[in-house]
Design a protein around this nucleic acid. Structure first.
Length: 579
DNA sequence: GCCGTTTTCGGCCCGACTGTTTTCAGTCG
């Protein structure tokens, strides 16, 4: 089995960490990190690129040597260099590098002086006060390391976007009354709308001063203070979320916003362009020699190097800078482009409201149509519909649509895809619906080949409109299924069916890179709420964020179509047996 | 290890904060 881009990137990342620990040339380390980023976000699988004789060394940050290693990793999952590095390094040493306050030099010292190579050993040594004796360490850093090691051992490192939203609201409310503050903007991965965030970056336009710094560290949810200074203050909240406050002057706000929004790869790419033009970009502005030529606004920073403003969701150095230069940036989809929703439940299965309540909620959310897609019988735990109950719901929706105004309910089902690729309800009944949403809810552990075949077979059934939440992952509890998503996307195009981006906060499934692949392949994506209550329709906003990260425009989104066009598109997916 | 309008060698983004230092290395973002 060939390895995915994520697997290859993980190998390079581990190589970088081990090289770093062995104190190799820092630029060599960086080369592996850059390559890992390139590969992780590359839309085409490295294995496919090799198969069609693509030149790997034509990819950015990949030269001849790394191209050879990619081939090696695709074939056998590792490379000689990684094997050698692993055998010459103590196990667990890369975990230490992830502990705040530890870099390669200190990890090196801890290992060679005290034999420490795991977070647990670090914690023990700190508690026994053995670390303070090392040169360059003292009681304070020992205390810090004990806390950081304990924190590392007990919590995950990234937070789903929706989970931090209430904290962000509280922070913003509280910052409004901070002394001398003119403006507060969330930056970092929160602003880029990444599906998870590692910490919160908050940019504050204000006159720096001790009063402001004191105010920042006084937020009621602050658990501990990592650092404080006039321009930068970092705290950890109860629960472990880190918050970095950056205080800048109003005239520097644009440059600071670009810098602190990131991503790191994006801002580094901007600085490189600036260098080639004999300019310097930092968080205070754009400079030619000592003369400051831009920085009040983000647009002025981009403009100084000949680029239009780039939406934050695209700032990952995945081709957005080239697109900006060429004038081909996408016009990203917005929430108001959505005219309907194609995945929602009622109390007939595991939803909490009636058909009519869901219809009214959709209308209130500004939608023109809502597909009712309750579960099918196989999902007994969700009270899935058998043929008789689905037939009754079809009649009920027809009757209700006679009464409703300003909103139309579409007749659908979220039908289980059985392990062999058949669907959980008879074809003749499915044919009476407006759309069939197929989903995998069982046997998530199948091999990549079998899981992929299962889904391709389901798509080939006579009635199959949309593949729901393709990867099946749930934040914090379940990783994604093993799938050949490229094959599924290609098959969807041939079959003329669609893929879903499920907007539930714990799903956000498809991934941004997959959305982009679908767009490039010409497969439309449904941004769906998967609502189980009328209030869940607000989740569409999260789905739109993810879609924007996947470069989707309104024209790529199925439920941005007016009802008439949508019905024609869906009709083509129904009762279309393939030979 | 990559890269090239400073092109096959010699660079590689850049500033803030901490702690242990007497002038700065290490780490972080």
């Amino acid at each position: 089995m060939s390895r995915s881009n994520a697997d290859i990137a993980a190998v390079f990342e581990e190589v970088a960490e081990l090289l770093e620990w062995q104190q190799a040339n820092a630029f060599r380390v960086r080369a592996y990190r850059n390559a890992a980023r390139t590969i992780a976000s590359w839309p085409e699988a490295m294995a496919d690129l090799i198969a069609r004789d693509g030149r790997l060394d034509e990819l950015p940050t990949i030269g001849r040597d790394l191209a050879g290693k990619i081939g090696e990793i695709v074939r056998r999952g590792s490379c000689d260099l990684l094997d050698r590095l692993r055998s010459s390094s103590p196990p667990g040493i890369t975990d230490l590098l992830h502990i705040s306050g530890l870099g390669p030099r200190r990890v090196h010292a801890l290992y060679h002086e005290l034999g420490i190579h795991t977070p647990t050993q670090l914690l023990d040594a700190a508690r026994e006060a053995r670390i303070r004796s090392l040169p360059g360490f003292g009681p304070r850093s020992e205390q810090r390391l004990a806390e950081a090691a304990a924190g590392y051992l007990e919590r995950s490192r990234r937070w789903p976007l929706a989970r931090v939203a209430p904290i962000v609201d509280a922070l913003q409310t509280w910052l409004r009354t901070a002394p001398g503050v003119a403006r507060v903007v969330m930056a970092g991965s929160f602003r880029r709308r990444r599906e998870t965030v590692g910490d919160l970056d908050i940019l504050i336009a204000a006159q720096p001063g001790p009063a402001l710094t004191r105010y920042l560290t006084g937020f009621e949810q602050v658990d501990s203070i990592l650092s404080r200074g006039p321009s930068r203050t970092s705290v950890v909240l109860h629960g472990g979320l880190q918050v970095d406050f950056r205080v800048v002057a109003a005239t520097e706000f644009g440059a600071a916003l670009v810098y602190f929004t990131g991503s790191r790869a994006h801002t580094i790419a901007l600085r490189r362009i600036a260098r080639s033009r004999k300019l310097k970009i930092n968080e205070y502005g754009v400079y030619r020699g000592r003369k400051r030529i831009a920085g009040d606004t983000e647009a002025s920073v981009y403009g100084s190097i000949g680029l239009p403003w780039i939406p934050p969701e695209l700032r990952e150095n995945r081709g957005e800078i080239e697109a900006a230069r060429d004038g081909t940036l996408p016009k990203l989809v917005q929430r108001r482009d959505l005219r309907g929703d194609l995945h929602a439940h009622t109390q007939a299965s595991d939803g909490r409201e009636s058909l009519e309540q869901m219809a009214q909620a959709a209308k209130a959310a500004g939608l023109k149509y809502l597909a009712i897609t309750d579960h099918s019988r196989r999902l007994a735990i969700a009270n899935g519909l058998d043929p008789g109950r689905l037939a009754a719901q079809i009649d009920a929706i027809d009757q209700l649509n006679e009464k409703l105004s300003g909103i139309v309910l579409l007749k659908g089902i979220e039908v289980d895809i059985l392990p062999d690729g058949r669907l959980d309800l008879p074809d003749a009944l499915l044919a009476r619906l407006d759309l069939v949403v197929g989903a995998v809810h069982s046997d998530l552990e199948l091999s990549r080949a079998r899981q992929t075949t299962r889904i391709l077979r389901a798509m080939d059934r006579p009635n199959f409109s949309i593949l729901a939440h393709p990867n099946g992952r749930l934040f914090g509890s379940r990783g994604p299924c093993q799938l050949d998503m490229d094959l599924i996307i290609d098959h969807a195009r041939e079959r003329g069916c669609f893929l879903e981006l499920d907007s539930q906060p714990d799903r956000l499934d498809m991934f941004d890179t997959q959305c982009r692949r679908a767009r490039e392949a010409g497969v439309m994506v449904a941004i769906s709420s998967d609502a189980h209550h009328g209030s869940d329709l607000r989740w569409l906003e999260l789905g739109v964020d993810q879609a924007r990260r996947g470069w989707l425009q309104a024209g790529d989104v199925l439920n941005a179509l007016p009802l008439g066009q949508l019905r024609r598109m869906l009709a083509r997916t129904m009762t279309q047996a393939r030979k």
